Amino acid sequence: MTQVALSQEMLGCIELCRRCHLVCLNMATGHCLEKGGRHVEPEHLKTMVVCAEICQTAANVMITGSGPHRQMCAVCADVCDACIASCRDLDEMEECVFACERCKNSCEAMTAV
């Protein structure tokens, strides 16, 4: 079996995507459900769950070392941006915003690699 050699930049992006997946899913199903109010509005929760899933998918695509990672990373960056916008004005969502910003920036860089 031949392994694909991944660049340090791509490995870093994979880790940021994995971290964003963990943070978004954990906060959506923990913090937001406990907080209630605007935190549990359907559009907000859907955005967070979709962000988590897209981040995990982007990481998985990058792991394969295949060309479509550019398109997947572009989508991931867009979805992270939507999650940032959804979380930014809510209480105690800084961890999610930070994870999404780092993932978005890294994914944007991956679109050119």
Rank of each mutant, 00 (worst) to 15 (best):
residue 68 P to Q: 02
residue 15 E to V: 10
residue 70 R to F: 04
residue 16 L to H: 13
residue 33 L to I: 14
residue 95 E to K: 00
residue 78 D to Y: 13
residue 39 H to S: 05
residue 104 K to Q: 13
residue 98 F to T: 14
residue 7 S to P: 03
residue 5 A to H: 09
residue 19 R to K: 08
residue 10 M to Q: 09
residue 27 M to G: 04
residue 46 K to R: 15
residue 48 M to Q: 14
residue 93 M to K: 10
residue 71 Q to I: 05
residue 107 C to P: 09
residue 82 A to H: 02
residue 77 A to E: 06
residue 10 M to F: 01
residue 71 Q to R: 05
residue 99 A to D: 02
residue 4 V to T: 15
residue 63 I to R: 14
residue 12 G to L: 09
residue 112 A to D: 09
residue 21 H to S: 08
residue 52 A to N: 07
residue 85 A to L: 13
residue 73 C to Q: 15
residue 2 T to A: 11
residue 97 V to L: 05
residue 58 A to Y: 08
residue 21 H to V: 10
residue 86 S to C: 03
residue 34 E to M: 05
residue 73 C to F: 09
residue 78 D to L: 15
residue 83 C to L: 09
residue 44 H to P: 01
residue 69 H to L: 07
residue 33 L to S: 04
residue 19 R to H: 11
residue 46 K to D: 11
residue 8 Q to F: 00
residue 99 A to W: 08
residue 52 A to F: 13
residue 96 C to S: 11
residue 73 C to E: 04
residue 24 C to I: 09
residue 101 E to N: 14
residue 99 A to C: 03
residue 92 E to H: 07
residue 56 Q to A: 11
residue 100 C to K: 10
residue 62 M to K: 01
residue 55 C to Q: 05
residue 85 A to P: 06
residue 83 C to H: 12
residue 113 V to W: 04
residue 94 E to S: 05
residue 29 T to V: 11
residue 107 C to W: 08
residue 55 C to G: 13
residue 67 G to F: 10
residue 34 E to I: 04
residue 48 M to A: 11
residue 83 C to Y: 07
residue 45 L to Y: 06
residue 37 G to H: 01
residue 73 C to R: 08
residue 2 T to Q: 11
residue 19 R to V: 09
residue 102 R to T: 03
residue 30 G to C: 14
residue 10 M to E: 10
residue 23 V to K: 00
residue 108 E to F: 05
residue 70 R to E: 12
residue 15 E to I: 01
residue 78 D to Q: 12
residue 50 V to K: 12
residue 11 L to H: 05
residue 109 A to E: 03
residue 99 A to M: 06
residue 4 V to I: 12
residue 14 I to Y: 07
residue 7 S to Y: 03
residue 82 A to P: 00
residue 81 D to G: 15
residue 35 K to F: 12
residue 57 T to V: 15
residue 99 A to H: 05
residue 56 Q to W: 04
residue 106 S to H: 03
residue 90 L to D: 12
residue 48 M to Y: 13
residue 64 T to Y: 01
residue 36 G to Y: 07
residue 98 F to Y: 06
residue 23 V to G: 00
residue 70 R to D: 02
residue 35 K to R: 15
residue 81 D to W: 11
residue 31 H to R: 02
residue 32 C to I: 03
residue 64 T to R: 10
residue 77 A to H: 10
residue 9 E to M: 10
residue 112 A to K: 15
residue 78 D to V: 12
residue 28 A to E: 12
residue 75 V to C: 10
residue 83 C to T: 03
residue 69 H to W: 11
residue 110 M to Y: 03
residue 110 M to N: 04
